[in-house]
Design a binder for these strands. Structure first.
Lengths: 194, 194
DNA sequence: CCCATTTCTTAATCTAGGTTATTGGAACAG
DNA sequence: CTGTTCCAATAACCTAGATTAAGAAATGGG
């Protein structure tokens, strides 16, 4: 198993000794999953964080009308998990699904807690990861209140150019908070005008 | 100056020795501000986190049409700051304003970094604070996509009962993401029906 | 290659929430 | 007490985006 990608991800924020790196990777579990398979289902308690090596995952909720809302996409080099459920150890409302065939690593909550004790630098690492994610999430909330659907779409194209041709359009719609029909209408309008 | 409230807040997640507590409070600055005064203005670099002792602050952005969107209210015992600007040390888009006459403590970024080095437990503390805030923020994003305005309003009443009679209605509208006029319409509908 | 399933597009109609404008109170300063 | 400023309420009208429906185009499995 090649742990280089996750070690590189971690080295963005903290520096590990070879021993620490060794200890860290010993806590990880490697898995593969086929497109369309669920890694975590609504109602379950989330016991791990996932790090994507290749492929793409998505986290989404289903509302009382059966409509899906995408909270996040996780392509290679991203972390994903149901943070609410992880913290509280209560059943969550998040589903995590593979959009493509995906390779990923699992860090269990138990191991993550051990990591905090054995190598306190990881407190810093995850603080920074969460901090950055919070900033992105907050910006998304502001955007959802301040921008029109077409502005949000153009924004998405700018911020995630690599995802735009890779994801089914309905997933992008579910991320932007519009119906697939309306996103389709938007796109055809944007194609005509300029 | 009475530092009991902030020490109590911190003791929710980590335990400090008397020396550590002493060192910590020596890094804080106490301030008071009158209602309607700005503590931080859009375009400035945010150099501190604020902890509210009494009163209430709000963080909000102003969009290109001049409409205000409230990101968070911070009553007593809450932390607030422009986390984007704090992390990047770039000018932020957040305004932080006193809704009521407010007493608060300032922890400068410089001191916060010192704290991480001198008392690494604070990495954990702020990780947990940010983590909890992220969960709340994420839930709010889900709600904004899944719930109608009246559901969000009823939710707000349930989650922040102490704020509902304390805040001007237009601020609540700016938090919920609707116009004050529409919130007014909602309330009168809700009053008639049950 | 073909059939089945999923995804995308288009169009007609509908509605939650926005806009604009007017009114009556509260708060507050002078 | 009186003019000013801010805030809430109501109502008539307007629009971004939802809903429904139906066909076209991809995708994928055997």
């Amino acid at each position: 198993m090649d742990f280089a990608p996750i070690l590189k991800n971690i080295s963005k924020h903290i520096t590990l000794t070879p021993d620490e790196a060794q200890r860290f990777v010993s806590m990880l579990e490697y898995k593969q999953v086929k497109a369309r398979k669920l890694l975590l289902q609504e109602g379950e308690v989330c016991k791990s964080s996932y790090f994507v090596i290749s492929g793409c995952l998505r986290g989404y909720t289903v509302d009382k009308n059966g409509i899906e809302h995408v909270l996040n996409f996780a392509p290679a080099d991203w972390w994903i998990g149901d943070i609410y459920s992880i913290i509280t150890q209560k059943p969550g409302m998040l589903n995590i699904e593979a959009i493509e065939d995906t390779e990923y690593l699992i860090l269990s909550m138990a191991n993550q807690e051990k990591l905090y004790l054995e190598i306190p630098k990881f407190e810093r690492f995850f603080r920074i990861i969460i901090q950055n994610y919070l900033v992105a999430n907050q910006q998304r909330l502001i955007d959802s209140m301040s921008l029109s659907a077409s502005e949000r779409y153009l924004n998405f194209c700018k911020v995630y150019p690599s995802l735009i041709n890779r994801l089914p359009q309905k997933q992008i719609a579910a991320y932007l908070g519009v119906t697939p029909e309306f996103l389709s209408k938007l796109k055809s309008k944007l194609n005509k005008k300029p």
